[in-house]
Design a protein around this nucleic acid. Structure first.
Lengths: 224, 224, 224, 224
DNA sequence: AATGAATGAGAGTTCATTCAT
DNA sequence: TATGAATGAACTCTCATTCAT
């Protein structure tokens, strides 16, 4: 599993499109932090601009100096989240030597991030209010690096050549995401809180599933 | 892929908990139809009771004779949707003789349903407002039959014994669902509309992925 | 304290003004009983026709066969209450020989009734929704007998001739009523419930107050 | 008759609990004025927030910046009314030299206030919706000063020692209140409007009643 | 005589957004 | 650059009343 470079820098502008002073940039940052906190806590619709600005310690009107509205700040947050997920995955995969262990490491990175920000991730997944385009991009960005990684591995003979890299990449992404929802968000431990990290056994089972699915196999049968 | 029996019948009651006359039952049905339409069109939050009752051609107050509120109709719709998804899958799998083709058929049934009701399925997946319990149940119901099918197939030697049936079932569910989102909801054809059915090539690629992941393999290496 | 004869009979008619059959009369009675119960429990505005008919064990529409609406059934109830209050007072005063003890007995009758139906009495007193005319009549009916009783007692030399009978009657009525509110409705005993009867000491204190106010006095001073 | 000091100052806060700017304070004041007008005109239940804000000439949402809801403005109004009643009574009693004339003056102050705001006073008295605690406090505040005044006068020998000061205070309060209702609210003059002030003769009669009730008397009989 | 499904005006309340300061 | 008072459209929900059965 590999992902596209998540280190592209954002370009901070005011809502009117003007470049920001350093003071303005600081205010903008505080709003984003507050927004992440509030959205994760309350979900998109329960969150309100008043709550965000109160949490940020600024006046209500100030919000509109930096953002066009609720939806816009949310979309920005999704884009940022996407960057962070991909970074978490990229870092986890950095030391891997072969394809199979890289895959496993990638998912570990993904699960680690989800476990660290469960509420935030849930809000994004349940995002009727993110524009479909943004949501599609969110997945696309993660999947596209994955897909080219698979292609390369197929060329090296590390991954079954019969698999379509695109469909396979989406399938694995979906598998990983639902596993994350199932074991990190919907599972409650004794205290009622979601577990702090993905159980090792689940990661092992997932890795075995992936290895099965991907590794080249001696074919004796005819085509599917 | 197998699913728990989706043919359990609902028992229509008024909001006050009383049994319905046939006239009442008809009205209730019209509300549900209208609600499905409106939710699919607008999503949960943009939908409103007024829009639903207008669409149903009834008075506003009538809605509250049959449902406690917006959330309750929605949850009822999700439960109904779940029943229909499972029926669609069960029917598709009915004729399959071996495990691998049954799996493929199950996903074809799933994709067929999603393609037929793309907006509705999207609303359910993006469902911050469904109670987490309902959402979890939605997946659980689908997955649990799947899981026991895997167990049985493992006993018969048709599926790799090294796989954990639970994790595998969730992984495949997630894979199928995201594939559905990707190729049915987010893909737009020339006319801007989502495609009416899953392209055959994608189904083939998915089937190959599943066969790889599940079929037993001669093991020469040690454990992962 | 004396009161006008409270034994005048009501004339049961349907909402359309027609005389009732015995079956209809029974239904009407059940509605009135249920209404008293529900109004006392919930107050005027929290009470609803549905609750009343449910309590009466009849259909919703049936209510409108016997009453014009919510307000009408309430006014009827107030009139009935008035009759019962006056009866309770009249019975208490029946055995009294002299004026002073008759006064005391009258208040005891009044307090006894209030203690037996605290919620109902409260609802009537707090009756923005009773037509002002009905409310005025409620007090008038009680006070008018009182007033003529005072006049007679003045003629007999039992009550201070300098007092205006009308003003005095209203003053004593108000005194008694607020004492009732204070010690029966607003006072809560240990268990949180209002006391079941007026404490004897309060009745004694009240009686002393009345005796002071009413009994003729040797006048040595000039006029007030 | 004496009353506890009614000059304590209120501290205006927004609904969110924040201190107000002078502009905010002005708006809040306009809402209160409008609310008093509308409540007095229509009673509690017929009054609505829309009517209040329309009368105040402000937007609907503005109301909720200053008050939590209908009930809260109303309770605030009752508290304010209570303060004004007590002030009116205190001012009337200020010049009185002896107890008896102080009592009379107190009632004159009370009647003057009721005559000036008849509708408002009626709404308060008929207040099923004021929390019982608030209503009880309303009376308590007036009565408690009254009661201690009676005690002091008993010590000085100006008031009959045999009377219980508490019961007597409530009795006189009730007497005065019902007299107010009777002659100021329920009495209509030729033009159909309630009289602008309490007729002097009624005040005289009331004063005589009070003097009788309170002044010490030579006792030759045994206890009541 | 009795029913209860249907109605819709109107209630209280929220909150993203504007704009004068 | 920052503010927060003001706005009003839109929401969910209630319930007295009607009327076809």
């Amino acid at each position: 599993m590999s992902v596209a470079d998540p280190h592209t820098e954002p370009r901070p502008l005011s809502a009117a499109g003007k470049p920001l002073t350093s003071r303005g940039e600081a205010t903008r940052g505080r709003i984003l932090e507050a927004a992440e906190h509030v959205f994760a806590d309350l979900g998109y619709h329960e969150a309100s601009i008043v709550k965000i600005t109160e949490h940020a310690g600024i006046g209500l009107g100030t919000f509109y100096l930096y953002f066009d509205g609720k939806q816009q700040v949310f979309e920005e947050l999704v884009i940022d989240l996407n960057r962070r997920v991909r970074r978490s995955m990229a870092e986890a995969m950095a030391g891997a030597t072969d394809r199979i262990s890289a895959e496993r490491a990638g998912f570990e990175g993904f699960f680690r991030f989800t476990a660290a920000h469960p509420a935030l991730y849930r809000v994004v997944r349940e995002a009727e209010f993110v524009s479909p385009e943004t949501l599609r991009l969110h997945y696309m960005r993660i999947v596209e690096g994955y897909e080219s990684g698979l292609r390369a591995a197929q060329a090296d003979g590390d991954v079954d050549e019969a698999l379509d890299p695109e469909v396979t990449a989406w399938a694995l992404m979906g598998a990983g995401e639902l596993i994350g929802m199932r074991y990190l968000l919907w599972e409650r431990d004794a205290g009622g809180a979601p577990p702090a990290e993905m159980p090792a056994s689940v990661v092992d089972d997932m890795a075995r599933f992936i290895r099965n699915a991907l590794s080249p196999r001696a074919r004796t049968e005819g085509p599917a």
